[in-house]
Simulated assay, not measured.
Amino acid sequence: MKKPLFADLSLLLVTIIWGTTFVLVQNAIDFLEPFSFNSIRFLAAAIILILCLFFF
């Protein structure tokens, strides 16, 4: 795959992911308090990081 095409597709993928998570975060903030939401986010990130460090 040519580098410009790969760069364009990567940028498109990042934009889609960012846009999707923006909507999900807005809906989650309506459901949870901000501190609870951030606690869950950071806990999930920490668990994923620990698993990545453990396996790799």
Rank of each mutant, 00 (worst) to 15 (best):
L11N: 13
C52K: 06
D8P: 01
L51Y: 14
F6Y: 05
P4F: 03
F35P: 02
V23I: 13
L43S: 10
F54S: 07
A45Y: 12
L24H: 12
N38V: 13
M1A: 14
P4H: 08
L5G: 04
T20A: 09
A46I: 05
I17A: 12
I16E: 01
S10V: 02
M1P: 09
P34H: 07
F37G: 07
T20W: 00
L24D: 06
F37D: 03
P4A: 03
A7S: 01
L9P: 03
Q26G: 07
L11K: 08
G19Q: 01
A44P: 02
A7Q: 10
L24F: 15
S39G: 08
I40G: 14
S36I: 14
F35Q: 03
G19F: 02
M1F: 04
A28W: 02
L5C: 01
L12M: 06
E33Q: 10
F42K: 09
F54V: 11
S10L: 15
D8F: 13
A45E: 13
V14P: 00
K2I: 02
L9G: 02
S36H: 07
E33Y: 03
G19V: 07
I47E: 04
P4K: 03
F22A: 00
L49A: 15
I17V: 15
F31G: 08
S36M: 08
M1V: 09
I47M: 08
K2Q: 02
F35Y: 05
K2A: 04
F31W: 15
F54I: 07
P34A: 10
L51S: 11
A28N: 05
L43M: 15
R41P: 00
W18F: 10
T15D: 02
L49D: 15
V25P: 01
T20H: 01
E33A: 15
I50K: 14
L53P: 01
F56G: 11
L5H: 07
P34S: 06
T15M: 03
K3N: 09
S10F: 02
I16A: 11
F56L: 11
L53T: 09
I50C: 14
L24Q: 09
L9Y: 14
Q26M: 11
F31K: 15
L12I: 08
I48E: 00
V23M: 13
I47L: 15
A44M: 10
V23A: 05
F35I: 03
Q26T: 11
I16T: 10
L5W: 01
L51F: 04
F42A: 04
Q26R: 15
T21R: 04
